[in-house]
Design a protein around this nucleic acid. Structure first.
Length: 351
DNA sequence: GGTATTTGACCCAG
DNA sequence: CTGGGTCAAATACC
């Protein structure tokens, strides 16, 4: 369990790597908007970093043999290795590793509110009297930390000037998929139905074929594959259990069950079939049902208007959607990218 | 019985 | 060494 006081598991290292990849993708999005030769060069460097991190993460997963990065199978309590609260703290087997620095998520936003309700589900994990404050600070993390690895946190304290108000500091982005808290999600899957020649700047995690669990870019090939969905659901039933309507059997029309082929597949469009999508240009193809999964469970993330409205629950820059949503790649992949014959297709851009 | 909160102990960055 | 942040056993709540 990643949250225990014991040594960090490889799964935790995987999470760190995947978060790093997410950040790089966020930068990449910005870079691509610039459309200059320098930007293209920089994009290549970012992608290299992403690939290295992904390879590292996958290698870690494969070496553990657990095949997944779910941080916990439960609430984190009651599992083996409970730490003694006295006596053995400095020498016991569960002392935290001193070589691993505690990672603090960046402060995203500070808001003042009269209520603690912000549309997200939080779990309180601590309270502390802070030196320069008369009121204690409460610590909350996202309820979906154990099941989806969502690292969002918030610190709440009663306003000094106005005791009826709370000052809330938000840290980290929500990477969880909580159907009850997504305000508006639109699916972008029409590339599968409409492999138009114009779709020249896709990043997709779609497989080359049904048996090859690699991810690749797509210039005109299937960018949203039902096979991928099936594999993801098979490997991560916990995550996909949220998609109660999603079936492992192919949909009647193989992912084109609704929505017409896109009339204009836009350039500089990034897509991640495992759970979330990055829309670099802000241009959309037609909303589309993913398999039989409700479309509203699949967010499109705008980059053009970067408004980190965390308090309202907007998941800007959420990529990947959750660490476990990448786990489908771990099934039989041979350890790292860069040594298969399809590498030429990885993240190629032609801006 | 399961889940969320409380709260003192522990960890670690500065 | 200090203080903010986190853990996890105990407790409360449903």
């Amino acid at each position: 369990m990643a949250s225990s006081g014991g040594g960090r598991s490889p799964a935790t290292a995987v999470l760190d790597d995947l978060v790093d990849v997410r950040d790089r993708v966020a930068m990449l999005q910005t870079v691509l908007q610039e459309s200059s030769p320098e930007a293209t060069l920089e994009a290549g460097e970012l992608v290299d970093g992403m690939m290295a991190k992904l390879s590292s993460a996958l290698s870690a997963v494969l070496s553990t043999g657990d095949g997944g990065v779910a941080s916990s199978s439960g609430t984190g309590r009651g599992l083996g290795g409970r730490r003694k609260r006295s006596g053995t703290a400095s020498s016991g087997p569960h002392r935290r590793s001193s070589s691993r620095r505690r990672m603090k998520s960046p402060l995203i936003k500070t808001v003042t509110a009269t209520t603690l309700t912000d549309g997200k589900s939080w779990r309180k994990y601590g309270q502390k009297q802070i030196n320069d404050s008369t009121n204690p600070r409460s610590y909350y993390r996202c309820t979906h930390l154990p099941d989806q690895g969502c690292k969002a946190k918030r610190h709440v304290h009663v306003s000094e000037s106005n005791p009826s108000e709370y000052t809330i500091d938000y840290y980290g982005q929500h990477t969880c998929k909580d159907p009850s808290t997504f305000p508006s999600l639109i699916v972008q899957g029409a590339a599968d139905a409409a492999p138009l020649p114009d779709c020249a700047n896709l990043i997709s995690f779609a497989p080359i074929n049904g048996a090859n669990r690699a991810f690749t870019t797509s210039t005109s090939t299937s960018a949203f594959s039902h096979h991928l969905m099936k594999e993801a659901s098979d490997y991560h039933p916990m995550l996909f259990s949220r998609f109660s309507n999603y079936s492992s059997s192919p949909p009647a029309q193989e992912g084109v069950s609704s929505g017409s082929p896109s009339p204009a597949c836009h350039r500089k469009y990034m897509q991640y079939a495992g759970g979330q999508f990055i829309n670099v240009t802000g241009l959309r193809t037609s909303p589309l049902t993913v398999g039989s999964a409700p479309a509203e469970y699949w967010p499109v993330v705008e980059v053009t208007g970067v408004d980190m409205d965390v308090a309202a629950g907007m998941d800007t820059y959420s990529f990947p959607s959750s660490p476990s949503s990448l786990g489908f790649m771990s099934g039989s992949l041979g350890g790292s990218f860069g040594n298969n014959v399809y590498d030429d297709d990885l993240f190629s851009f032609d801006s």
